[in-house]
Design a protein around this nucleic acid. Structure first.
Length: 620
DNA sequence: ATCTAAAAG
C-alpha cells in the first residue's frame, strides 16, 4: 500500500467518520453517503476503502457525471497518494483511458461504466463501485442505479456499492435499496442570506440589472454571480451592465469587470472566470446554469437568481423535443444560493417572492430520465440480455411514465432495432454498440448497406458534436478578420452542409486556424474528428466499404448524396415531415399527422415525392 | 424573419 506523501490528504470532515464508514460498508452491500460540498467525499471515500484493503480483490470504480470532474478528481487523488496518473490511480473518459493493470482507484464517467458493463455485465474487475454525485440524477446514473440493484444480488459476497449525494434525498435512495444505511457527512459551507422580491418581475433582465447595480453601489467587496437562462440574455445583460456601470458617478464605487459564462463560450474565454478579480475591482459573472454545478467560480459572495432555467423536454406523444424556459426547483434555487457561500457568508437575491419558492417551485428538478427519449436507454438495456427482464417493469429510482417507455419501444420497432415481440434484432445489437442515438446508428447501418458509409460516418460525427453554424450577415464583415464562406450544402440540406464542412476541414489538414477563419468552434470540430475515428473503429468489423474520408480525389464529377439522404430517412423514419403544397409549412409523416414548423434547419429533399424534413425539434 | 442549456457514449 502506498504511504501518504508529505503533502498528504488534507483533514476533511469525512476523515472523522472513517471508522463509521468502514463499519457500514463492511456490514452492508450498499450504503448511501450524504456529503455536502467540501466534505471531501469525492476524493476521500475511495482512498479510505483502498487503505482498508478493499482493493486487494479488485479495483474501486468512482463514477462522475462529467468528464472534467473525473479527470480533475483523479489527479488530486493521485497527488495525495504521491503516484502518477495511470498507476495506482487513473481515469477513463471517452477517447482517453489513463489506467493500467496497476490501477486500483479508477475515476470514470458514468457513461464509460455503462459501456464497460456492455461487454462485462458483472463488472468483475471492481470490488467497490461508488456512484458519486447521484443527486444530479443524470440519465446514466439512473440507469446505473437500476443495474446496481440487480448486480448486488448476483455479487452479494464480493461487491460493495456506495451512492453519494449532496442533498437530503438519502431516504429515497435508501428505500430503493431496501432500507440501506444512510451516513451524513457535514460539509464546510458558509451561511447565505436570502432576499426575495415582492413580485415576479415582468422583465427579469431589467430586474437583475437593477439588483446588480444596487449591490455594486451599496455592498462590500465580493464578486456577483448572475444566473440567466441563455446566451442571448447573457449577452444583453453583459452589455447593459457595462453601460450602466459606465454611467455611474466617477469614484462613487470600485471598478467593475463583467464576464459572460456559458457552455458554448470558447475555452479560453471560459477560463477567464478562474482568474481572481484585480485589486479594487468587483467582478460580475453573468452565467447560465453551467455555474450551478459544472463550473465553480471562486470569490462569489452575491448571487442574483432569476428563478428560471432552459430545459429540454421530450414529449412522447409527439416524439419530439422542445427547449423551454421553466421555473427552477427548490433544490436548484438552493444550489444557486449556495454558490455565494463558498469562501465566506454570502447573500442571494431571488427575483421571485418567497411564496412562489414555497408553493410553486417543485421540490426537486424532474430527473432527466423523465424528460428524455428513452429509445437509447431501452435499446441499451435490451442489449444487456438481462434474464427475466421486462423493460416496462425495470426497477428505476423514479420510473419514467409508461407512455414514455412505450414510445421508446415503438421508436425502436420503427427502425428495426426490436421485433414485434420486443426482442432485440441483429440490427439492434449493432446499433447498441455504437455510441450514438438510435436514429443515427440506424442511419449508419443503412448507409453501410447502401454504400455510403464514409459519408454517413462524417455526418453522424459532426451531428454528435452539435456544431452551431452562426449566421453572419454581410455587415458583420467589418473589422480586419473576415469570416470565410462555408460550404452551403449545394441545396441538399444541412446534413450535406455539415458533411462538406468536415471534408473541407480535412482538406485543410485539420488546421485549427481553418476553423477560426470560418467561425467554427475548434473544440467542436476536433470532437467530431475523435467521434468519427471511434465510430469507424467500431463499425470496421461490419463495414462493406471504405470508412476513411474520400474527399481528396479531386472533383471530377458532382458528389453523390442521394444514398446518404436515403440512409438518413431510414434512420430518422420516425421523425419525417413533408412540405405542404401551396402552404408555407410542413406536416409530420406517420401514424399521427401534426403541423410543424422547422426551427432546426435539417432540411432534406427526399424520395422523389417533394420536400421532406428530418426534425429534431419543433414548435407548435 | 428565427434561433440552442448542459452533459454524456
Amino acid at each position: 500500500m502506498p504511504s501518504p506523501s508529505p503533502s498528504g490528504p488534507p483533514v476533511l470532515p469525512i476523515s472523522e467518520h472513517e471508522d463509521e464508514i468502514v463499519a457500514a460498508v463492511e456490514a452492508n452491500p450498499v450504503i448511501v453517503v450524504i456529503g455536502e460540498t467540501g466534505s471531501g467525499k469525492s476524493t476521500q471515500l475511495s482512498q479510505i476503502l483502498h487503505r482498508r484493503g478493499y482493493t486487494r480483490r479488485g479495483a474501486i470504480a468512482v463514477t462522475q457525471p462529467r468528464r472534467v470532474a473525473a479527470v480533475s478528481v483523479s489527479r488530486r487523488v493521485a497527488q495525495e497518494l504521491g503516484v502518477s496518473i495511470g498507476e495506482e490511480v487513473g481515469y477513463a473518459i471517452r477517447f482517453e483511458d489513463r489506467t493500467s493493470e496497476k490501477t486500483k482507484i479508477k475515476y470514470l464517467t458514468d457513461g464509460v461504466l455503462l459501456r464497460e458493463s456492455l461487454s462485462n455485465p458483472e463488472l468483475k474487475q471492481y470490488s467497490v463501485i461508488i456512484l458519486d454525485e447521484a443527486h444530479e440524477r443524470s440519465l446514466n446514473t439512473d440507469i446505473l442505479l437500476g443495474l446496481m440493484k440487480r448486480l448486488i444480488k448476483h455479487r452479494a459476497s464480493d461487491l460493495k456499492v456506495l451512492i453519494t449525494s449532496a442533498t437530503l434525498d438519502g431516504l429515497k435512495v435508501s428505500n430503493f435499496f431496501s432500507g440501506c444505511p444512510v451516513l451524513n457527512i457535514p460539509g464546510t459551507i458558509f451561511p447565505v442570506e436570502k432576499f426575495y422580491s415582492t413580485d415576479r418581475p415582468t422583465n427579469y433582465i431589467e430586474s437583475s440589472l437593477r439588483t446588480a447595480i444596487d449591490i455594486h453601489v451599496k455592498e462590500a467587496p465580493g464578486d456577483v454571480l448572475i444566473f440567466m437562462t441563455g446566451k442571448d440574455d447573457i449577452d444583453k445583460m453583459v452589455s447593459k451592465l457595462e453601460e450602466r456601470i459606465q454611467n455611474l458617478e466617477e469614484g462613487s464605487c470600485m471598478d467593475a469587470l463583467v464576464l459572460p459564462l456559458h457552455g458554448s463560450l470558447p475555452p479560453e474565454q471560459q477560463v477567464r472566470v478562474f482568474s481572481p478579480a484585480p485589486p479594487n475591482c468587483r467582478r460580475f459573472i453573468v452565467a447560465t446554469n453551467v455555474a450551478e454545478t459544472s463550473l465553480t467560480v471562486d470569490g462569489v459572495v452575491f448571487v442574483v437568481d432569476c428563478g428560471y432555467v432552459k430545459q429540454r423536454q421530450y414529449n412522447p406523444s409527439t416524439g419530439m423535443y422542445s427547449l423551454d424556459v421553466v421555473e427552477i426547483s427548490r433544490v436548484q434555487a438552493d444550489q444557486r444560493a449556495g454558490r455565494a457561500g463558498r469562501t465566506r457568508p454570502g447573500k442571494c437575491y431571488r427575483l421571485y417572492p418567497s411564496s412562489i419558492y414555497q408553493k410553486e417551485f417543485l421540490e426537486a428538478t424532474v430527473p432527466e430520465i423523465q424528460r428524455t427519449s428513452l429509445a437509447g436507454s431501452v435499446l441499451y438495456l435490451k442489449s444487456l440480455n438481462l434474464p427475466d427482464i421486462d423493460i416496462l417493469k425495470f426497477d428505476f429510482l423514479d420510473p419514467p411514465s409508461r407512455e414514455s417507455l412505450e414510445d421508446a419501444l415503438r421508436q425502436l420497432y420503427l427502425i428495426d432495432a426490436i421485433d414485434e415481440s420486443g426482442q432485440i434484432t441483429d440490427v439492434g445489437r449493432l446499433m447498441a454498440e455504437l455510441p450514438l442515438d438510435p436514429s443515427l446508428s440506424r442511419t449508419l447501418i443503412e448507409a453501410n448497406e447502401l454504400g455510403c458509409l464514409s459519408q454517413a460516418l462524417t455526418v453522424a460525427a459532426v451531428l454528435s458534436a452539435e456544431i452551431t453554424l452562426r449566421q453572419t450577415r454581410s455587415k458583420d464583415m467589418e473589422g480586419k478578420r473576415k469570416r470565410q464562406e462555408l460550404p452551403d450544402g449545394s441545396g441538399w440540406g444541412d446534413h450535406v452542409q455539415l458533411l462538406q464542412i468536415f471534408e473541407s476541414w480535412d482538406q485543410a489538414d485539420y488546421d485549427p486556424r481553418w476553423c477560426s477563419d470560418h467561425d467554427l468552434q475548434v473544440r467542436g470540430m476536433k470532437f467530431s474528428k475523435d467521434v468519427r475515428n471511434q465510430l469507424s473503429q467500431i463499425i470496421q468489423k461490419i463495414a462493406k466499404g471504405p470508412t476513411d474520408l474520400q474527399a481528396r480525389r479531386g472533383r471530377k464529377s458532382d458528389p453523390e448524396y442521394r444514398k446518404l439522404r436515403r440512409a438518413l430517412c431510414v434512420g430518422y423514419g420516425n421523425q419525417l415531415a413533408e412540405r405542404m403544397i401551396h402552404h408555407n409549412g410542413y406536416h409530420t409523416v406517420g401514424y399521427r399527422t401534426q403541423l410543424v414548423q422547422c426551427i432546426h434547419l435539417l432540411y432534406l429533399k427526399v424520395m422523389n415525392t417533394g420536400n421532406c424534413l428530418c426534425m429534431s425539434s419543433t414548435t407548435n
